[in-house]
Design a protein around this nucleic acid. Structure first.
Lengths: 147, 147
DNA sequence: CTATATTCGTCAGATAATCTGACTATGAAC
DNA sequence: GTTCATAGTCAGATTATCTGACGAATATAG
C-alpha cells in the first residue's frame, strides 16, 4: 500500500515475474509459441529423470487436477511424455520429450542471461548474498518437501 | 529443472507465494473470507489516496479489463469504492473503503509478522541485504513506472 | 482554435486456468 | 487379508484472464 517501501513479498513478485516473462518471450520467439505461462510453470519443474504429477502439482502450488490438465496439453504439443513409474504402478512419470528438451535449452540460456544482468546490476557480491538469502528463506517457506 | 540450485526466479516464487498465502489465510480467518487471491493482488496496490484502474492493472501485471473485473467484485463486497478523479474526467480513483481498511490492517500485521520471521531466520544483516538487493533489482525489472 | 491522435475505462464475448467432489486402482499398514 | 492411504483421473462448475471494439475526455499539432 505504500509506494516506496514495498514489502519483501511484493519485491520478489516484481523480479520473479520479470524473469518469467523474459523466458517465455524468448521461448516463443524461438518458435515454441504454443505453450502458455501456466504450462511453463509446471514444465520447468520436471526433473531430469521424470517427475510424478503430484510432485509437479505440489511444487507449482496447484492441485493435481490442474497440473494434470496442463500436462495433458504439454503432452499433446510434444513437450513431455508420460511413462509408467517402475516403483509404483499407480503413478506415472512425466518426462521431458524431445521438443521439450530443445525448448529447455533455450530457457536455460535465457535464465543464465537474466541472472547475469542481475549480477551485473547488483555486483557479484550482492548477487551471491541474494542467492544465499533466498536459499535460506526457502527452508522456511517451501511447502514442497522432497523425500 | 535441477533439484538443488533453483534459479533465482524460482526461489523468489517460493517465498513470494508463502507470504501471499499467509496473508490471505489470516485475512480469511479474520472474517474476510470472501476475497480471492486475484482480488487481493489488485487490492494491495491501492495507494492511500486512491489509484487509477490502469495503474493497478499495470502494477499487478494484468489487463485493465481484468483489473476492472476484480475491482467490480471488491466494490460489491465493500472493500473499495470508486470516486471520480478530479484531475481527469475520464478516470476514476479506486479507493480503499471502510471494510477494506479493516482488512488492510490485518494484512499489514501479518506482513510484518512474516517479515519478522524471515529476519529471525536470516539474521538482521542478511535480511537488510536481501531488501537492498530486491530494491535494486526492481530498478531493472519493474515494468511499472510511477509518473 | 480546430483536427487528430492518445488515453481511460467499459462492454461483450471467448478462452484458459483453477477448484471441489467423486471414483478406480494400487500400495502400505496392521 | 482387511483396512486405510496414495496416485491419478473424470466430471462439472467457477474464476480469472485475454482480445477486440467502443465512447468520452484529454493532449498534441498545426
Amino acid at each position: 500500500m505504500a509506494r516506496d517501501d514495498l514489502n519483501a513479498g511484493l519485491l520478489m513478485f516484481v523480479a520473479y515475474r520479470a524473469m518469467e516473462k523474459r523466458v517465455l518471450d524468448a521461448i516463443a520467439a524461438a518458435g515454441f509459441d504454443d505453450i502458455t505461462l501456466a504450462q511453463a510453470r509446471v514444465f520447468q519443474r520436471i526433473g531430469p529423470d521424470g517427475t510424478r504429477l503430484g510432485e509437479l502439482a505440489e511444487q507449482a502450488q496447484v492441485t493435481k487436477q490442474t497440473a494434470g490438465f496442463l500436462v495433458d496439453q504439454l503432452e499433446r504439443a510434444g513437450y513431455v511424455e508420460r511413462t509408467p513409474d517402475p516403483a509404483d504402478a499407480r503413478a506415472r512419470l512425466v518426462r521431458v520429450a524431445e521438443r521439450g528438451r530443445t525448448a529447455g535449452v533455450v530457457a536455460a540460456a535465457v535464465v543464465a542471461e537474466v541472472e547475469g544482468e542481475w549480477a551485473a546490476h547488483l555486483g557479484a557480491r550482492r548477487m551471491t548474498q541474494l542467492r544465499e538469502a533466498l536459499g535460506m528463506l526457502r527452508e522456511i517457506t517451501d511447502p514442497y518437501r522432497p523425500r
